[in-house]
Amino acid sequence: MLIDHVSDLEASSSQPSSPPPAAGTVRIAGPKPPPTFGQWVNVTAILLIHVGTVIALMRGVTWKLVALAVASYVVRMFAITAGYHRYFSHRSYKTSRAFQLFLGFLGTTAVQKGPLWWASTHRVHHRFSDTERDVHSPLQRGFWYSHMGWWLGREHEHTDLEKVPDFAAYPELRWLDRNHIVGPAVLIAGLWLAGGYDAFLWGFVVSTCALMHGTFTINSLAHVIGRRRYATTDTSRNNFVLALITLGEGWHNNHHHYMNSANQGFFWWEIDISYYVLRALESVSLIWDVRRPPAQVLRRNLLSEVGERAPLLLKPKKQKTREFSSPVPTPAPHVTQHTAS
């Protein structure tokens, strides 16, 4: 069965984002509810991942174990960047129903929940980028919240299927999204059977720790550090180092300028490893209709030509004060006049 979607994400993010709630909105504060079971699981898992990384380093490092961790990192980073992000979130290419399911399953091994959850939250980020309703804007909520705090929050715990009606129509994807723990369990079992405890520590624990922080740097740093080519209404930036870490996601200003593109490195010198793999998959017809930015998009809304448009980056205009050349005259004293009788 072939999948032929009609994109509803065509508009470039250089268009103004939806406005945040009105300034006069009244918010009633109440007692903060206790953490849910899911939140406790997420916090515990993150702590164990970091503790396990320390244990792995203390047990000793070998080139084979490092190579295993790197290989696991690269494959799963590709699953997030080319699968969860560029396919499920932005539909930048088409594929078969079987390969779509494979991409979703491979993405779950990265321990970043299911493909429908990931895509639904990411679409919210693009719709309200850098406003109060953004999922993880560092300009609104600070570094730690945008890096990891939002991930642990109650408000982003469940999948909003209304945000992804295109993919929610597939029952196998809904099942995979609900049972996203199956992917990590299969990976852990395979590593343990193939190489024992150390293979598990390096192929899963160390790799997952690096993968998690590598992915989250796009949320926390790619709107703060780097250069801007396009005058998007958000604060997205291009960052070469982040592009290397995330196989091409660091060209974030490019992406927010034209989010439906399969390549985020728009020019040959912008390294985008995920896109190179997608080109290889296209050459063997595993994927097709790969979307790339048209020539006019590459030349549109250049910051050097139109100026800055991001509200958070615009400098507030100074109010001019009126100067007087002479002091304000004081009123004349009241004089009482007497008339002759």
Rank of each mutant, 00 (worst) to 15 (best):
M1E: 13
L2Y: 05
I3E: 06
A11V: 08
S12F: 01
S13P: 01
S14H: 06
P16Y: 07
R27T: 13
K32E: 10
P33T: 09
Q39P: 00
V41S: 00
V41D: 00
N42A: 02
N42T: 02
L47W: 03
L48K: 01
V54G: 09
A67C: 14
L68Q: 11
A69M: 13
V70N: 05
S72K: 11
Y73Q: 09
V75D: 03
F78C: 09
A79R: 08
I80T: 11
A82I: 04
S89Y: 12
L101M: 12
L103S: 07
K113M: 02
K113V: 02
A119G: 03
S120K: 07
R123T: 09
F128P: 14
P138Y: 03
R141I: 02
S146R: 12
H147G: 05
M148L: 11
L161M: 02
K163T: 03
V164Y: 00
D166H: 15
A169Q: 10
Y170I: 12
P171G: 08
W175H: 07
N179P: 09
V182A: 06
G183W: 03
P184Y: 00
W192P: 10
L193C: 13
A194H: 07
V205K: 01
T208S: 07
G214M: 01
I218A: 05
L221V: 12
Y230V: 06
T232R: 09
S236F: 04
Y258S: 12
S261P: 06
A262E: 08
F266H: 14
W269I: 15
E270L: 08
D272H: 06
Y276N: 15
V277A: 14
L278Q: 12
E282N: 13
V290C: 04
V290S: 03
V297K: 08
V297S: 05
S304C: 10
R309T: 05
P311I: 07
L312E: 12
L312A: 14
L314M: 06
K320E: 06
K320R: 15
E323M: 09
E323G: 10
S325K: 10
T330E: 08
T336S: 11
T336L: 11
A340Y: 13
S341G: 11
